[in-house]
Amino acid sequence: MHEIGDWFQRLYETTGLNFSVFYDAYDWDRYFGGLKMTLLLSVTTILLSLMIGAVGALLQGSPSMLLRLPVNAFVVVFRNTPPLVQIFFFYFGLGTMLPAVEAAGMRVPLLSNVQWAIISLSLFAAAFNVEIFRSGIEAVPRTTLEAAEALGYTRLKAYVHIVLPLAIRVCLPALNNNLVNLLKTTTLAYAIAVPETLYAVKQIWSESQNVFEMMVVLLATYGILVGVLVWLMHRWERAMRIPGYAR
């Protein structure tokens, strides 16, 4: 670890390229904290958006207009408005309306900026997931469902054992895309001062005056994060592939 720090220190002294994060413990801690926050945001929003999306898709397929209409409105509104404005609307608009709570002798908002970022980003991505899941379910031919019915499957069992396993395979590529997009969108939490990677890096470059170097670090960081997510999703896609089943 020391050698790396020394190397970057020498690099700074000889070339003037100041990658302060790699030798300055304070900058490194800030950067690493930002990275952890980005990971926390990504993982929680991905999981939440998948759950909300699945529930939404289920409701959208229900025969009741009363259930379908709100889901449709939700999808249409969240898909066609800027996610940043959504975050502001939630954090400032709704956040200030909620009662404050007593915590450690101080009055603090009921939900923190991190929590609001997670809520609004999850809803944003979920609006897309609803559509993706729905189209996956609809891509399963009616006749396959009929065959299950003829074998005595109930509707629920047919969904669990036949429709969903097939639907998930159909929508994986689109889902893959949307989740990568969500990872990139977590940067918007910067705007409500969530200390994620972009926020941390900006603080570092304002103090250490190394915009160019930190920009390289920033782009590399997101490049790697997106790369890892894409790799994971592709592995999943491959694992789910059915032999003899061309798409």
Binding site: P141, T143, T144, E146, A147, A148, A150, I162, P165, L166, R169, I242, Y245
Partner: peptide, 13 residues
Amino acid sequence: VGMVFQQYNLFPH
């Protein structure tokens, strides 16, 4: 009652 369809309708997965 067992039933066999024109399009087989096997479960592809």
